[in-house]
């Protein structure tokens, strides 16, 4: 992502991830994290999350950011190619990048950055952003949870 934010949307099929990742129809959106450059979690929401971590959300955010940070530094050290973009996303689904870019360009920038009353840190408190993001995620063709 060409952004200052780290958006991480987990939507890998849960237990059967290995066998069905190609079938987008079976995908679903579990939850989303938006981190700023300093690692604080600006925004979190969940839709079809079936398993909770069993730790506080604050701890979970730290763990998630730590993992992403580590992956990024791992990728940049291991890649034989020039890392122009660095770590982007787990490739679980073709449209993930597009979707994340849309969330950044059309929702975050339009509704948070351009709203002078809204400061991103420490966490987003824009109702408009939250409801638009929720509506957008729900409208994704792969949103609905697969039939059990």
């Amino acid at each position: 992502m060409k952004s200052n934010l780290k958006l991480f949307c987990s939507h890998a099929g849960s237990s059967a991830a290995g066998s069905c990742w190609r079938q987008e129809a079976k995908m679903t959106v579990h939850n989303i994290y938006i981190f700023d450059r300093n690692g604080s979690c600006l925004f979190y929401n969940e839709w079809n999350r079936k398993k909770q971590a069993g730790i506080s959300k604050e701890e979970e955010f730290k763990l998630m950011y730590g993992m992403l940070f580590s992956i990024r530094s791992f990728v940049s050290k291991m890649s034989p190619l020039d890392m122009k973009d660095g770590f982007l996303s787990f490739q679980t689904m073709n449209r993930a990048r597009e979707t994340l870019q849309h969330i950044y360009s059309n929702l975050y920038v339009e509704l948070v950055v351009k709203n002078p009353a809204c400061s991103p840190a420490p966490s987003l408190d824009s109702e408009l952003f939250c409801s638009r993001l929720d509506a957008f995620i729900r409208s994704l063709p792969f949103f609905s949870p697969r039939a059990a």
């Binding site: 200052n4 059309n106 920038v109």
Partner: peptide, 9 residues
């Protein structure tokens, strides 16, 4: 703030 708009556009 402008940088975000710039990167997005």
């Amino acid at each position: 703030r402008l940088i975000e708009d710039f990167l997005a556009r």
